[in-house]
Design a protein around this nucleic acid. Sequence first.
DNA 1: TTGTAATTACGAAAAACTTCGTATATATTT
DNA 2: AAATATATACGAAGTTTTTCGTAATTACAA
Lengths: 130, 130
Amino acid sequence: MLRNISYNTMKPTDSEMEILQLLWEHGPLTVRELNDKLNQQRRVGYTTSLKMMQIMTQKGLLTRDTALRSHIYSPALRPEDVQSNILDHVLKTVFMGDRSRLVMQALGNHNVTTEELSELKALIQKMEEK
Amino acid sequence: MLRNISYNTMKPTDSEMEILQLLWEHGPLTVRELNDKLNQQRRVGYTTSLKMMQIMTQKGLLTRDTALRSHIYSPALRPEDVQSNILDHVLKTVFMGDRSRLVMQALGNHNVTTEELSELKALIQKMEEK
DNA sequence: TTGTAATTACGAAAAACTTCGTATATATTT
DNA sequence: AAATATATACGAAGTTTTTCGTAATTACAA
């Protein structure tokens, strides 16, 4: 259960998402480690990453272990929860609440693997049973 | 066909989306009309709306007819195009490119009407045929 | 016609987000 | 032990977005 997380916290900015992504993917990291990974994507100063992560910790997006000199940061939220919240927001503000339109848009104009297709069919099956 | 539209233009801010939504829904509007509608949702000053719409026009998000004293503003982009662009962005930055995860998330935990279900099935059918 | 209301243009303050420099502390190396 | 390297804290500058006040202009009404 998520508690003490404000609505805004659940809608991270693009820069915050970059950091969350890396932490979700590569587990708990020090600032140094994260900054190195970030710099494989674009040039960012060390203290910039540090400051971002400190702010994100304050906002409740990250937690950190300060036992050692190099603090170790972890994401405070599960990807599903952030994804769900952002998608709801996009649904409301961009798609005027039209969920099937969103899904169509997500599927249409794109190559979908047969694997994805069967996943989808399974899900639909499950929904029809209710 | 979209011309001279930068990547950023296609990713409007939340405030810009509010205005686009109203224009998409209620057709071309004067600043006064739009500001009235906006104020049914939240308190916004008239000149705030005016400035936003002027900036959005400059960015290429809106067009305007200045023939009369009260300029008449229209959206410059079709909802589908903006929606598609934003969804691609969310897919990349929030869902790490995992499209079926996004679709599952959009469908899961929510009531989907039987109508939406058959729409979906039809779409899947179509995709399987290719 | 003179004053009142409504409109646009525009500058700039306010707020939110991003970036970094500097100071300070802690560890490591020579 | 002294010099060097690495870490955190923190203030503040830089950017972008949002908000609004004021001035100038145009229409409308008394």
